[in-house]
Design a binder for these strands. Sequence first.
DNA 1: ATGACTCGCAACGCGAGA
Length: 257
Amino acid sequence: MVKIATWNVNSIKARLPNLLDWLETASPDVVLLQELKCVEENFPRRELEALEYHCAAVGQKSYNGVAILSKQPIEDLVGRLPGEPEDEQARYLEGSTFGLRVAALYLPNGNPVQSEKYPYKLRWMARLEAHARTLLESERPVLLGGDYNVCPSDDDVYDPEGFRNDALCRPESRQAFRRLVNLGLTEAWRALHATPHVYSYWDYTARAFDNDNGLRIDHFLLSPQAADRLATCEIDREPRGKPKASDHTPVVCELMA
DNA sequence: ATGACTCGCAACGCGAGA
């Protein structure tokens, strides 16, 4: 069994003690991280290598940044999503490990929808769709994991009416997500769980976690060759309840050998 | 309550997050 996790850590520097604790407890084979908020030179490589993880990261100052950790070497790295060469935001990293092609992705939030940020989000999703099409042609096991900043349906939102016009829930965002899935990808958690209103993110404000006012925006999309091996997919709420928690919590899936 | 937390920043309040 290969255990793969995705987690938006909201600053790897601020989250390092929590991350190291969780890695020791959960012991995932592969980890996809988002929102590092640091340049590559400041990535805490030594601390993660001490836990026997190979590391690959793309970063930028203050914002974004994604990484792949793996108990096995990570090869054939691609550090940018194709399709918009002038886009310098560090939101995508792809590599091969454990015989899998994995990507850590941090999809743009897109709010406010009246700003340039929303069309950027939709362009980014179109680029991801085009690239996923190419990845699927390889007929390899592929996992695209990360913070998609999309609630696929109202079942993934604590307050659907309140989020009706939010970039995470807008019809165009959901349609772009469906277009991606409809290429032949499987959204791992929803494929294994029908339960509505289970979340992976809770706002820091207004006691959102205590009241379970959350969103499900962290997802794994699997190619058929990966989906055929899918055994489990769970959201681990525990890290969200700890002191100095990220606003996101890890999502973990297991693939049969 | 155009609010609330938390992060980074050549910072000492602001932009961004979702």
